[in-house]
Design a protein around this nucleic acid. Structure first.
Lengths: 223, 223
DNA sequence: CCTACCGATCGGTAGG
DNA sequence: CCTACCGATCGGTAGG
């Protein structure tokens, strides 16, 4: 129970490392083939241990799935949420959150694209606890964007007549599509389409409402 | 081989009907749980026939998957493509194609949402023949939109400075997101967010470039 | 379309 | 963490 039980100080850490290694392989596999394709036997083979060796860490497949989602949530929070939230509230944070997501897709943090986009498509229809978690996650993400849009409206960074929920939807759409197409075409540069779409949606909701700034024209800055 | 082999004229039709009934169940199941969750045993149970009874119709699981995709393609062409293409070329056809897709989502043509959105998410990463089909399908859909945008530009229905591929991406994003969220929340009315996003993206690319027409404001018509 | 069967793999258990 | 095993289900075959 404590570090006094043995003179091999790595003993306890070994179990934790194996546990983490299993979850790491599980996240990668699930991002590519879906949570439903996760099997204890496959993970065991991939990690070179016995099936019951993997099983002993989780005690049920359901728990393996749950812990895999939790581990992926930590990755998402570290790679997308934290850097995105570092920007000041309002329009800057909206842009920062969108950019963090697109960068995370571009960097290939998960080999099969965004873990949660995969989860959304896999569990949008089937009922159950994972479906319910996905609903909550999507609502949270949209509410986060919507809240920052409200702030931006109050701060005069966006036209106060903007429909916040509608704009949140219009920002989220290109992020999702960029993720799927970047994965499909093995071409992370498609995320620039997402950047253009985010810029366009925000430009359209800008307070001045200048006609020049709200087109789907090639980026005026030549980016 | 001909209708003279028996005096029971429904004999040949029965086999075809069973074949079609299997594919119908397969499409519905795959739209909900994915093509990977299709198993011959499950289809047999659902249809009340033996496993080898189902197997005999396809001779391999791969062929079952292929024929399921082909059957879903026919549904998509009938429910989305045909009505969408009925509109005159250019901007009207773009609007019509988007509306046909959103209506197809709204009507719940497949119980698990758009079959091809499911297929995109499931096979965006894993290599193989289905991945390649999905790539071709996505390219075709985007090329169709892009081509009509080009026509609209030539006809003066859209600003000629519009980046066609970028606008096609911005139209497609909300369609995909509307499909996933409508399925997730069992609420087909989310498709109105998709309609708003399509209207906004097209308004932004309109030739006059009027500032009034390119906001994420609540629909001016009060729809 | 059926029964009967094959080897492989599934999630999970027993016992160490 | 291991071996050895369970019943269920997988894709597929044989034979009718």
């Amino acid at each position: 129970m404590s570090e006094t039980t043995t003179d091999q100080p790595r003993r306890r850490s070994d179990g934790e490392q194996t546990h983490a290694a299993i979850l790491d392989a599980a996240m990668r596999l699930a991002s590519i083939e879906g949570l439903g394709s996760l099997t204890i036997g496959r993970l065991a083979r991939e990690l070179g241990v016995s099936k019951s060796g993997v099983f002993a860490h989780f005690k049920s497949k359901q728990r393996l799935q749950q812990e895999t989602i939790e581990a992926a949530t930590e990755v998402f929070e570290r790679e997308v949420f934290a850097p995105g939230m570092a920007a000041p509230e309002g329009r800057a944070r909206i842009e920062s959150l969108c950019e963090s997501y697109l960068s995370y897709v571009e960097r290939g943090v998960f080999p099969g694209g965004c873990f949660f986009a995969q989860l959304l498509a896999e569990f949008d229809a089937p009922s159950g606890p994972i479906h319910d978690e996905v609903v909550a996650g999507q609502e949270g993400w949209l509410a986060l964007l919507e809240g920052q849009i409200e702030v931006a409206k109050r701060e005069g960074e966006l036209d106060p007549a903007t429909d916040s929920a509608q704009l949140a939807f219009e920002l989220y759409g290109p992020l999702e599509l960029a993720n799927y197409l970047a994965t499909l075409n093995r071409d992370p540069s498609i995320t620039d389409r997402g950047r253009g779409a985010v810029r366009a949606a925000l430009g359209r909701a800008s307070p001045h409402g200048g006609a020049r700034s709200c087109g789907a024209q090639p980026s005026p800055g030549g980016g």
